[in-house]
Design a protein around this nucleic acid. Sequence first.
DNA 1: ATACATGATTCAGG
DNA 2: CCTGAATCATGTAT
Length: 430
Amino acid sequence: MDDTQRLGVMHPQQGAVSMSAPENMIQQYNLQPTGQEPSEQRKQEIGDILQQIMTITDQSLDEAQARKHTLNCHRMKPALFSVLCEIKEKTVLSIRNSQEEEPPDPQLMRLDNMLIAEGVAGPEKGGGSSAAANATAAASGGQPDSAIEHSDYRAKLAQIRQIYHTELEKYEQACNEFTTHVVNLLREQSRTRPIAPKEIERMVGIIRKKFAAIEMQLKQSTCEAVMILRSRFLDARRKRRNFSKQATEVLNEYFYSHLSNPYPSEEAKEELARKCGITVSQVSNWFGNKRIRYKKNIGKAQEEANLYAAKTAAAAAAVGHDGQGGAAGYNLGSSQGGIGGQGSGMYMNLNGDNYQSSDNSATPLRSTAGSHGGSPPDIDRKPEDSVDSWTAGQPSLGGQTPLGFMHNMEGDGGEGYSHHEQEDIKRPMV
DNA sequence: ATACATGATTCAGG
DNA sequence: CCTGAATCATGTAT
């Protein structure tokens, strides 16, 4: 603010009081044209001047106007004015030197970006809630219904947005008003003191900067408000929501149809994610949980497996020769037609190589056989041992031999369930 | 109210 | 970075 004070624009009255030397000279000269006397009289003059200054605010506008006029008309004015100009010139130069191009504030840019990302400072006004909804949906992992559940969030965000825009408008208006005021004032003053257009420009710049700082504060607090809102609602959003039945079905179908190697490739995950309306990482989560829980509770899993095997078989049958679609993973047809009750039959087929031949590129998969035999040009890029660890951990489904299964069950920390499961489980025979 | 199911997170290992 | 495993926290069925 020292710049503005130096130029005497922010506080016109103050400008009169703390007048710069040349101006003071003029005034002094005007008051005491004949004064070139020793100290006594000098003191008197100073006293007068002070008195005048003290009472300057009491003067009426007319008086001030008249005084200004006298000042302008004074015979010495042009000469003094030119001196003033010279001094000013130097000052301006020094100011210019001290001026540097400031780069856009990264902090401000961050705030702006965030506000836009959050849909607070978006380009459209009415669409604030929709932008917020988009952000909500994006952050929630693409679950379509999550956005609806958080109308509260959107409402609050819209509120913040509204306040933000109102305030912003207010600031803008105030800034413009003030700028106009100052510019007028400077123009007015330029009659009595030299003010270059550039100086006015500069002053406008300074004012804008000041208001920008205020704006930044507004943005900052808006960001904070949004962050608080987010943390409150977004955390709630992170609450577990069960996937839709259909989604679970799709996932299970894939899982059980790729039971020998339930590690979907990235492409497969994307496909599944798309089908289920969830994210790829949710698919990954699901498969991670599924694998571990499948292993932990084979008995139950088997029922499920049969269920899905039946479903898939039915689907395959319905589709007929066309091997496409979700049922494409494996081929049940070759075994006894026992769908449903006969777990063993299912598993045999699930486990075998049968499905592989009918497997298509849409669901790339590295088969157990493949991993043990040669190295097929598979698209899957699982950790080298993933298949082995999976098959090794399995009771028998992926294992090549029943013996291997027995050993694995003993060794692999089957946890408490193991012996119980062994009774329950209908073990496939290879 | 409780137990179980389930999606997400965390952590260690490779 | 992906995985298995353990765990958390919530949803759901009883």
